[in-house]
Design a protein around this nucleic acid. Structure first.
Lengths: 341, 341
DNA sequence: ATCCATTGCGCAATCGTTTGCGGTTGATAA
DNA sequence: TTATCAACCGCAAACGATTGCGCAATGGAT
């Protein structure tokens, strides 16, 4: 059963396709009686407009590409929620384009966006994308782009990112303020700009308080399993840390249980703080204080910026870089000895 | 700078658009010399085919709609990974259509799929979708559909779901076998078919061992926060449970820390088992044994089935219902007293 | 020299909609 | 009675690509 077109409806009623088209969108040129009749028949024939044809005429489609390094349970789901919140009421749909941490795939994804003339692109880069490559990819694209979270240095495109350095600095300072002396740091992939910035913030906080930056207490883990390993090694050290800064949820989920497993009590023997969306820290007991990295908020901001780019149709203005501040959320149980111990 | 069309390329070379079209796809009708020349110029003019036009002619687009109840960090990210694994090499792209647990939005999403003639649809229903509504929505759609995970009873469409009842039964049996007598159950939204089935499995396991089904030990929680509340109440009971079955990751993340917070020791005072994708249980210490609910596997199966439907172009054959078995994964730390306690 | 088969390219229709413009009506005003 | 003007609707050209068919030129075979 082929789907009926506007012509089918028209010929069934002995009118012109253009009349049907106008009637269905309540164009005043069409008489009220005929208009209703057409609508009735169209509904009866279960006519639905072919969007490919519509879009060809209208030369635009309401699709936004979302290019992300990987579809993980961390961070991106909430970013997507934020994006959807903005896009849905405006009639845009999101096309998922995960790159699986492969720059090659990322390039393909971007190419897809170009060929299919999506309305715009939201992108977070893979950990292996070189700044030069990212730049040329986006430049070739010739459509509205907003970079979020995993950005690259000095990109002439709009971006929405966290105040990474500041967040890490304040997190570390929090540990220092609560009296910790030997502070370890667990970071993500060292290629990432956010890792570098957070490391920088971590280091600065230590420096400011004249605490040593101990190499053996600073580790990089690409995922939760690696974070687990890092913790084992770290906690086996003679001079194990009395506090650990964890730069992300993924690190937390690997490292937190690993600390407990190594026989160290949180928070009595070792304090923990992290940068997080806020959900994960509440899923542990004792809870974890954190600098709030608002995924949904970043998604919203990025999407808002993108639609304004799309709808204002300007591309070559000077890029806007939005730095989102992180808020400290302090869980009371973090810095107290736990009941019964 | 408008993008150049096939006509632009043609007129630049003084040839017909059809010649350009053929040359670019290496049609033998076009002489080799001209063919190369055309390719050169096309590349130089940065010509990219307009997919809307192509798709209009070809009357198909390689987009697959993914309609899910909500974009959460639980389960769906891994499902999406599984789906992408299958779809990407076959040239399909995924369009995200989260329904935010609203049947209205779900209907809109499905309508979008129809109007945009996507190649097919993968759907997991909201917790509020009525069986009759779901049925009529999909029937109206008139395109390949595969339902996964959150299905509805007696749907005449292909589906890929977990052997829910069996998984819950075996999980509960595991608790019974390890000597637990007062077994509590934490379930998700009671509307869901998977909840009903898992509850059924839970109940059957108890019955088989002549253990009582205690109403006060069986609770339903729509999310992690509610699970937290349920646990508080449950653990305050005079006859608190000595084991808890949790039907999902989300329940675990709310309930597990809540148990600890109530001063109960896991696993000494209370054993825990759950149905899970496998990542979350490893993020706790002590770890949690679980029945493996393979999200990526389900995504793969569903996507495979969908592409076979799409490419064989058959719709009215009898529906295939694939039931995926869950595998028991036993963590050693679960049933032992923890070191140092 | 005639015929036939290639080779190489252009013509024009087509996909399903939208939309500027023009052409009929019938009614109203002059 | 005739000019005017709505109100209504149809014609046909787009949008950008694909493709069956036709047709000219070429070359080889007869």
């Amino acid at each position: 059963m082929k789907r009926s077109t506007i012509k089918d409806v028209a010929s069934r009623l002995g009118v012109n396709p253009s009349t049907v088209s106008r009637a269905l969108k309540d164009h005043p040129d069409i008489g009220l009686a005929l208009r209703e009749e057409i609508k009735r028949v169209a509904a009866e024939m279960r006519y639905v407009p072919n969007q490919m044809a519509v879009q060809l005429r209208q030369r635009q489609r309401h699709l936004v590409g979302l290019v992300i390094p990987e579809m993980t349970m961390f961070f991106y789901p909430s970013v997507i929620r934020g994006i959807e919140e903005v896009l849905e009421p405006r009639g845009y749909q999101l096309v998922m384009l995960p790159s699986n941490e492969s720059p090659v795939r990322e390039a393909q994804n971007l190419k897809f966006c170009g060929e299919n003339q999506l309305a715009g692109v939201l992108i977070s880069f893979t950990r292996h994308t070189l700044p030069a490559d990212g730049l040329s990819l986006l430049s070739d694209l010739d459509m509205p782009v907003v970079v979020f979270d995993k950005s690259l240095p000095e990109l002439p495109f709009d971006s929405v990112i966290l105040e990474d350095e500041d967040a890490a600095r304040r997190a570390t300072q929090f540990l220092i303020d609560s009296g910790c002396k030997r502070i370890g740091g667990l970071f993500g992939s060292p290629n990432l700009l956010i890792t570098q910035k957070r490391l920088q913030g971590f280091r600065k906080a230590l420096e400011k308080s004249d605490l040593p930056f101990v190499e053996s207490l600073v580790r990089f883990a690409g995922n939760a399993a690696e974070a687990d390993l890092c913790v084992r090694e770290m906690m086996d050290l003679d001079d194990a840390p009395d506090a650990v800064f964890m730069m992300s949820d993924e690190i937390v989920m690997g490292a937190y249980p690993a600390i407990l497993r190594s026989g160290v009590n949180i928070p009595r023997d070792c304090s923990v703080i992290c940068i997080s969306d806020g959900f994960i820290p509440g899923c542990y007991y004792p809870g974890i204080s954190y600098l709030h990295h608002d995924g949904a908020g970043i998604g919203r901001e990025a999407a808002l910026r993108l639609v304004s780019l799309i709808e204002s149709d300007q591309s070559a203005v000077l890029p806007l870089h939005r730095m989102v501040n992180a808020e400290l959320v302090e869980l009371e149980s973090t810095n107290r000895t736990v009941k019964g111990e």
